[in-house]
Amino acid sequence: MTKTIDKNFSMPKCFNERSKPSLYCPGCGQSIFLKHLGFIIDDLEIQGKTTLGIDIGCSLLAWNFFNFDIVQTHHGRSVPVAVGYKLSNKRRIVMSIMGDGGGYAIGLQSLLHAAFRNNPISVFVLNNTGYSMTGGQMAPTSIPGEITTTSPSGKDPKNSGKAFHGPELIKQISDNSAYIARASVSNPIMLQKMIKKTLENQIKNNSFSFLEVLTPCPTNWKTTASESFNFLSKMEKEFPIGEMTKNEK
């Protein structure tokens, strides 16, 4: 693991250098996640076997992020595209990346059914408690009391529900062979370990694999670097980090 930490100062080999510096805002957790994902794809030597579907929202900024095939879909629709692609091309390692709005609001139906059917794809949902590309609206994952442009007095759980727990929900309906976990960019060692398992479970067990990643959004949170990490710590209390396997014996 020391080796992987050292690599944080270099770039993954599977990066498309022409797309760098990326379009992500300074301090964005999504670009941090994508860098770790790149390192794991290098480690597993699967660059030539990987296809990525991305959503609308900030994830669309990754449309040419890597040197492998990427298709930008519509909001909440990278999962059904990945499902159709994998069914037609079983040897490819197929990933879907989306935000918490894409995964838990508009695309929840497809996400749940892909998990329910145990479609062998790896899905990453990046949770920053809001809709970022559209300027910081309330998401299902917004924490009670959180101020957003559509909850200016703070999210009221009586009207809008509490904070949405995606992996915990998916665990209820997924197959025993599914991999389900939650990581945070604040802990890169654990994040890399979980990204690796999310990909390996598709490859080795031909099963649905899901990782939620807690990511900061300083632009919409309107936070400094240290405030961003303070809010990320608050998120980690609301959304516990860890693996949620079905076969806990």
Binding site: V79, G84, L87
Partner: peptide
């Protein structure tokens, strides 16, 4: 989902 899976 049917339409997007066709696309996939």
């Amino acid at each position: 989902a049917a339409g997007f899976a066709v696309i996939g």
